Computed example of a mutant assay.
Amino acid sequence: MTLEHAVYCDELVRQTTELRGHLSGADLSATVPTCPDWTLRKLVLHVGEAHRWVDHIVRTRATGMVEPKYVPGAGGPESEDAAVLDAWLAEGAELCAAALREAGPDLAVWSWAGDTTASFWSRRMTHETAVHRADAAGTVGAPYTLPADVAADALDEWLGLVTFVQKFKKTGSPLGEPGQSLHLHATDAPDAEWFIEIGDEGFTWRHAHEKATVAVRGPLADVLRVFYRRLPADTPAVEVIGDAAVLDQWLTTASFG
């Protein structure tokens, strides 16, 4: 499913507000277990840079790649004060959402993927923020939930982006062997199921309930986090049925980077 552009814009701000809540009073020098090269502060800087980068791309109607280092303010505040960092993060999300709202969904702008419209960026920034909020929540021990429509759309987007990258990727490990398949089944959201089939030249996916080489069952937000490698596959809330090695291969190699 794909949400409305205006919904993404609102959700981008809401996810940022929840991220800020996880960070309130936290030790910003703490290492993020799911991004071990980052501290919480670096996580905030990454998310905030992305917001300001996209704000710049959309607001200037960029038709080519813009290096984030050339975007004013994208590098973060000079102050180490947590309150200053929090205000910078909040402002960047509002700027990004405002630029996207003003642009509308169909404005043509540069993107690194096949969809060169503002709606690509409203969707991408929503899920970028939501997934990194999972990083922050895991670091500070906070519960993590997502609206079902947002979580389902995040999985749709992830599979779409991996499909795009696989189409143009010339090297790297395969996602699996032809004939293997994966089934994702959310136990708390109606019709939230995905069937992924690996073929000779990449993979295809669809919303379906079908027997697969390996299945992942559990609450939708947890299935999403497993598939984004924000939870281990053996987390108690999730059940893996079938050939776990197929899931491991997918999780090790699937990327849009």
Rank of each mutant, 00 (worst) to 15 (best):
H5I: 04
M65D: 04
T116Q: 13
L247F: 12
T2N: 12
V71H: 03
A151S: 02
L100V: 00
L45M: 10
T31Q: 08
L182D: 02
A74C: 14
F227N: 03
L159N: 02
M1N: 09
Y228S: 02
G104C: 00
A154P: 06
H5W: 01
R14N: 05
T129I: 00
G64L: 02
C35A: 13
L247D: 12
A98F: 00
L107P: 03
Y8A: 05
A118T: 15
A103P: 05
V71Y: 01
V162M: 04
H127K: 10
A99G: 12
A26S: 14
V238L: 00
K170L: 09
C9M: 01
E18L: 13
W38E: 13
D106E: 08
F120H: 15
I57S: 07
T235R: 07
A137C: 03
R225S: 00
A99N: 08
W53V: 14
H209W: 10
W38H: 11
S111D: 04
A103I: 09
R52G: 12
R206A: 08
T163I: 01
A189Q: 15
D222F: 04
E177K: 12
E11Y: 01
A99H: 01
L89T: 13
V140F: 14
H132Y: 14
S173P: 03
S111K: 06
A212N: 01
T204G: 08
R14Q: 07
S173Q: 02
T2E: 12
L19G: 04
A74K: 06
S181W: 10
G104Y: 02
D86I: 10
A152G: 09
L184V: 03
P143A: 05
A130H: 00
V66A: 07
D200Y: 11
G218K: 05
V66W: 04
